[in-house]
Simulated scan of single mutants.
Amino acid sequence: MIVPQTPQDAVAVAGHYDELDPVYRRVWGEHVHHGLWETGRETPAQAVEALVETVGDRLRLRPGEACVDIGCGYGATARQLAAGRGVRVTGFTLSAVQARHAAAHPTPGVEIHHRDWFANALPEGSADAAWAIESTEHMADKPRFFAEAHRVLSPGGRLVVCAWLADPAASEWTVRHLLEPVCREGRLPSMGTREEYEAMARAAGFTVTGYEDVSRRVARTWTICARRLLKALAMDRDARRLALRGRHRVFAVTVPRLIQAYRTGAMRYGIFTLAAAGEDAAPE
């Protein structure tokens, strides 16, 4: 597990997304996660939606199911899957700004809460499926994340986790100059490996039914972000103030680090498909 030199917590994560909200939405939009390129010809908007559809496919979502979006951001993923798959979604975000944006874009079947996942207040066994797209990185207690997801899911319930992962063979140089700074600058309390995630999931009672490394198909997210960020910095004084000054000034430096982390293989992007104990928990 890669742990940053400066400890990060939920307050720091919320502040990061609240204060950088204008930059995130201008540079990438309402989906605060990677895009997934299947053919290489997709637009960025199509690519981010493709990742959401991949999650929906892995979960085998059925109309009417109760779902949970853990770390839902602006609610874009919840809205897409509710509208396209006919499911009901309850989402949780630490960011007050993201929650207000979601409230301003209501969608039937979607309910977004400004609340920590560890205080979700959902009844035990109340959800059929859940997903966490690039949110576990921001949780200091990852075993507790899996335990809480297992509590909320019904027997046989499905969970998909899309996560930034550290290569277990990453060199000391890449850890020091790429992965640790990415954690510190991106407000990640830790970055785990595939093996660590699977061990935590199993300890919580999940069966790992699938895993896919899609690093090569998501990596271009950051080259696109870099170009858009440079344009925003050149044209927008407010963007320059947010991205280059104050406690978030490292944001502009983090993007090149992420590009290099993918190029060196020090960082991976994995999609885990998990099942709670029950009839649907047999490995694929």
Rank of each mutant, 00 (worst) to 15 (best):
V68W: 04
C162M: 11
Y24I: 09
A239Y: 01
A219P: 02
R202K: 14
R58F: 07
G278M: 09
L122D: 08
A252L: 09
K142E: 05
Q8A: 13
G71L: 03
A12T: 06
L244Q: 14
H31S: 13
L178G: 08
R240M: 05
N120G: 07
E195D: 15
P123Y: 10
F272Y: 14
C162R: 01
H33Q: 13
I271M: 14
A104K: 02
G192C: 12
E53R: 08
A203Y: 06
I2Y: 03
E124N: 11
P256V: 12
A129V: 05
F145T: 05
R144S: 06
G192N: 09
A47Q: 07
R25I: 09
D236S: 13
A45T: 11
V23G: 01
R184H: 10
W117D: 12
R115F: 04
A47K: 00
E137R: 00
P63H: 03
E134P: 01
A252S: 14
P168R: 13
T174G: 04
V182M: 15
G265K: 05
I271C: 08
P4A: 07
A83S: 09
D69P: 00
A266R: 06
G71D: 02
P44K: 12
A199S: 14
E49M: 12
L188V: 07
M200W: 12
L178W: 07
H105F: 03
M191L: 15
Q98C: 00
E19Q: 09
V218T: 13
F145P: 06
G156M: 12
L122W: 07
H34Y: 14
D141N: 15
D21M: 04
E196V: 01
A50I: 02
V87L: 10
P7C: 08
T193C: 09
G210V: 09
V97I: 08
A163W: 00
D116Y: 04
A239S: 10
D116T: 02
S135W: 00
R184D: 15
A12W: 02
A129R: 14
H248M: 10
E185S: 03
T39D: 14
P155I: 11
A78S: 15
H16I: 04
R247G: 00
T77L: 12
L153T: 03
P108A: 14
R257L: 15
V110W: 06
A96H: 01
L233V: 10
L165C: 12
A104E: 12
V152C: 08
Y17K: 03
E53T: 01
M235V: 11
H138L: 11
S126I: 08
Q260D: 13
E148V: 08
P106Q: 10
C225E: 08
A276M: 04
E111N: 02
E195K: 10
